[in-house]
Design a protein around this nucleic acid. Structure first.
Length: 134
DNA sequence: GCCAACGTTGGC
DNA sequence: GCCAACGTTGGC
């Protein structure tokens, strides 16, 4: 079981949109590192849902419900999509500011490589953020 | 709106 | 295979 973090601009697709839809397919990724992370996802893995650009914070937890398949938004077979469902919202969303100011989270890719849109999260980081958000 | 970071493209 | 040019992401 692995942990991930997936980013979305709330203006494009927000946590509320995911709650409303009940599930979604995560497509449109055009970055090899992010793509490779998506290919490593297994059914049952969990991912933080993060809002980039505006309201930069982790709002909730999504569950991977379908492993990678051809991205339906392109014919190019280099790109893949996965399906996710919302699992639970954080009572207190964890802001980027909180993550950056917490020494225990200073190695998070979210901080170190801010442009990567699908990234792994360690169990330790996961537990800390879950606690901060509860 | 600006700009740093970083990924991709294409000329050589 | 290197690297300059360019495009995009995302924090501020």
């Amino acid at each position: 079981m692995n942990y991930w973090l997936m980013k979305s601009e709330p203006g494009t697709y927000s946590w509320d949109d995911l709650l409303k839809d009940g599930s979604t397919f995560w497509d449109g990724v055009r970055n090899y590192t992010a793509r490779n992370n998506m290919k490593s996802m297994k059914v049952g893995d969990l991912a933080f849902f993060y809002h980039s650009v505006k309201q930069t914070r982790i709002l909730g937890v999504a569950k991977i419900v379908k492993e990678y398949y051809q991205d339906p938004s392109t014919d190019d077979d280099r790109w893949v999509a996965v399906d996710i469902e919302p699992l639970s919202a954080l009572n207190n969303p964890v802001t980027l500011e909180q993550v950056k100011s917490d020494d225990r989270l200073s190695d998070m890719i979210l901080v170190r490589q801010s442009r990567l849109s699908v990234q792994p999260v360690t169990k330790e980081e996961w537990d800390i953020i879950m606690k901060l958000g509860s």
